[in-house]
Write a protein that binds this DNA or RNA. Structure first.
Lengths: 254, 254
DNA sequence: TGCTGTGAACCCGTTCACAGCA
DNA sequence: TGCTGTGAACGGGTTCACAGCA
């Protein structure tokens, strides 16, 4: 194991492109909804609309899984639900630990989507002794001291980090040492992990900054824009936003 | 929907690739840390390491912004912080509303990273009358009925949706109608918005499913191809069949 | 007649390797 | 002598357009 190998290169004959993998949960959600409405089959067009992608992409994605559709008809909903679930590894149950039971950790513990599909919150862990023993979402909070034991006793391989940034790397190291090989990181830090460990990050402030970038753009080019939205009531915008310095082209004449 | 115009096509003149924009906040965070330690300059190599990318990519990214470095030396930290902040539109203050003050909404309201850089929680909104008037993170919760007025009075253009999935589209529509043009969606739903409105989504359960996919892969090291309907000579795992080196803790199926 | 499945073209982003400048 | 800035090669992902099959 030498240099940067974070995700495997999808080499094998079985290789499903990473971009496709990232969309499978989306399809699965749409299919589950259809299933609950007892819809027997869907066309790529319909399903794509429900999942918010275009149909060519969806068909291409599915083609990596195999030929699960019927030409002239579409896809069998139940069958696809099963195939995608299996592909994603959701036919088994994944015990997950959440480390850091602050506001966010508590929110995650309470999040219904967790239990609904293949995941189970096996334990909540926090460094604050005041929290230890108290239950959040019906699950008792345990102390960080027991982290390794908890991981091992429960056979946990997926960990969620919801601690402050300063504690994240340390927690990460302990999780990995205890056997965790997939980490979902909510702390605003770059985690470094050994090869073979996957990290995905969710970073609120980064998302907002990306939005701000585009938002700023919109403000500056109301003229050249392709006229997409901009409904009648454009009155908003020139609100009392500040402008301590005027480096940014101020809002247009509205 | 929309005939393929979700993000504008990176206008020639000012065009910064979307992938680069998504990394700017990462660089900014690393630079801010350096700045606080009064480090005057960094090389692309050092900064790249701090941001978790490789140096060639970082230099290429910065080249889209302009020539802000000094050959043989590196980048001036303060100067870069300013340039990136400006590029991202963070030299102005963005009022943000959070709709849906459940566990997650409350966590977001309390999230420090919000206020720290360019963003200000202008209002919290919830449909539950029991919450109305109560303060979360020092900010009073207001009722959904007043959503439009709140948006307009505060000149809000960025909205955060943290409602249950069922309410998200409706809330989204109202936000957009009231003038919001950027939305950060935490609800597990595909939102449809008119052209000119940006949506970014954060979806816990999707992230976990992606991790599960890779995790499953790790467990079945030698497996050739999980059959779909075409049985090969390969026995599907399903049973707790693991590789000789039991590096990954066993997982028990439900 | 539809709708799936897929080669091929196209586009965007990453990496390489080196030219250019302090 | 470094280290930045960047053209060019490369590779993955998306889109197109149509062949193939129920």
């Amino acid at each position: 194991m030498a240099t940067g190998r974070t995700h495997r290169p999808a080499t094998r004959s079985r290789g499903i492109p990473e971009a496709t993998v990232a969309r499978l949960p989306l399809y699965l959600r749409a299919l589950t909804a259809l299933s609950e409405r007892s819809v027997p089959t869907v066309s790529s067009e319909e399903l794509a609309a429900a999942a918010g992608v275009n149909s060519a992409k969806l068909r291409k994605d599915f083609s990596y899984l195999g030929s699960y559709g019927t030409r002239g008809v579409g896809y069998d909903v139940e069958y696809l639900v099963y195939q995608i679930s299996r592909e994603l590894g959701l036919t088994q149950d994944w015990p997950v630990v959440i480390v850091g039971i602050g506001n966010l950790g508590a929110a995650l513990a309470n999040y219904g989507g967790f239990a609904s599909r293949g995941f189970r919150v096996a334990a909540l862990i926090d460094a604050d002794p005041a929290l230890t023993g108290r239950a959040v979402a019906g699950i008792p909070v345990q102390h960080t001291d027991d982290l390794e034991k908890i991981i091992q006793d429960n056979g946990v391989s997926i960990g969620v980090i919801a601690t402050p940034a300063g504690a994240a790397q340390q927690v990460c190291d302990r999780l990995v040492a205890a056997g965790v090989t997939s980490i979902l990181n909510f702390a605003p830090t770059v985690l470094s992990v050994p090869d073979g460990v996957d990290v995905r990050k969710v970073d609120l402030s980064i998302e907002l900054q990306i939005l701000a970038f585009h938002e700023q753009r919109k403000a500056g080019e109301e003229a050249a824009s392709p006229d997409g939205g901009v409904p009648a009531a454009v009155a908003r915008k020139e609100s009392a936003d500040k402008g301590p310095d005027g480096d940014v082209p101020a809002v247009m004449p509205a």
